[in-house]
């Protein structure tokens, strides 16, 4: 264990401590907001595994969130399942869905994959409208019980912590190396014995499973309601924005990305300049553009830049690449 590693552990511990202690100083409403940030955290983490580490772009993670969310809502509403018990179920179901999407996605790359996943994001929220017997149509479906905000905050960030540690363990080991090899050069990866189909579909499955859990918690965070229009394209785009702001291919910025998309709409709504409720979108859009112009590689890119200023030349960077 070198000094660098220890330093990172300290940073993570500090952030975790802040997140753990934060709810004690927050109002009920702000705990709800904090839980929302946690939801984005998990979803962005999942997208980062797929897009940042394996190089497979997806604009369709809102679809997986919808599947996870509806899993929770239907299980709780129709079968009275305990809410926490629905989370692993959502994880499993979306994992399988991710694998299923991953198989045809093997044939696409780059912008075609982006648009194919975008198709998913557009189509899935329409399905509950068609099959309204199970899903309550446009009125949505509600979980049997709606949890309070402090419960939500705790559960969400607990899931986020498990997800973070899981992602970190996964990505630093053999699988993570294979993912990165696929991202950097598919040909080189194949010739070094990495089975492309297996690792690409696996990345899709894991990434979708993260999004599924995020979707479950997202439903719980909206008073237990699963509604089709909550899972629209905007949600998928928000996750993508969050991942880009966090910086792809690094886990260190995810918190920043989650805070960005979780809180910015709230903050920009309170900017008084434009004098109406619609000013929110103007401010949000402008800030998104400004951040991308100033930090094209996201927060993680900024970190790398700062780090390289202080780095001794011999030390080689292996974890953030």
């Amino acid at each position: 264990m070198n000094a660098r590693f220890a330093g990172r552990l300290v940073v993570i511990a500090a952030v975790a401590l802040v997140i753990a202690l934060l709810p004690f100083g927050l109002t009920n409403y702000h705990q709800g907001l904090g839980a929302r940030v946690g939801v984005y955290f998990i979803a962005i983490l999942g997208l980062n595994i797929l897009t940042g580490y394996t190089g497979q772009i997806s604009i369709g993670h809102g679809a997986f969130m919808a599947i996870g969310g509806y899993t929770t809502a239907i299980m709780s509403h129709d079968h009275g399942t305990n809410l926490i018990a629905t989370l692993p179920l959502a994880f499993a179901i979306t994992f399988v869905c991710g694998l299923l999407v991953g198989v045809p996605a093997l044939r696409f790359s780059g912008v075609y994959l982006a648009l194919a996943t975008f198709a998913l994001a557009v189509s899935v929220p329409q399905l509950p409208l068609k099959f309204s017997k199970f899903t309550g149509g446009s009125n949505g479906i509600r979980t049997a019980t709606a949890p309070g905000n402090s419960w939500l905050y705790g559960v969400t960030w607990a899931c986020a912590a498990i997800g973070f540690v899981g992602a970190w363990l996964l990505l630093r080991g053999r699988t993570g190396r294979a993912f990165r090899a696929v991202r950097d050069s598919e040909l080189a990866a194949t010739s070094s014995g990495v089975a492309l189909p297996i690792y690409k579909t696996l990345a899709f499955g894991i990434s979708a499973a993260y999004a599924g859990v995020a979707g479950s918690l997202f439903v719980l965070a909206t008073a237990g309601f699963a509604q089709p229009n909550e899972f629209g394209i905007i949600l998928s785009l928000e996750i993508l924005i969050g991942a880009a702001v966090a910086g792809l291919g690094s886990l260190w910025g995810v918190v920043v990305g989650a805070v960005f998309v979780g809180l910015l709409p709230e903050i920009s709504a309170s900017v008084p300049v434009l004098g109406s409720g619609h000013g929110q979108d103007v401010v949000f859009g402008l800030i998104v553009i400004a951040v991308m112009i100033l930090l094209p590689n996201g927060f993680a890119g900024l970190l790398r830049l700062v780090e390289s200023r202080f780095k001794t030349p011999i030390e080689s960077d292996s974890t953030t690449s």
């Binding site: 993508l240 924005i241 979108d281 949000f284 859009g285 553009i289 112009i293």
Partner: peptide
């Protein structure tokens, strides 16, 4: 931002939100 494709895509998404907001406003 034209060097980074993902940055351009995000900027166009930002424009989407911005234009939508401006017109509604």
């Amino acid at each position: 931002v034209h060097q980074s494709i993902i940055a351009v895509v995000i900027v166009t998404v930002g424009l989407f939100i911005l234009i939508d907001g401006l017109v509604t406003w």
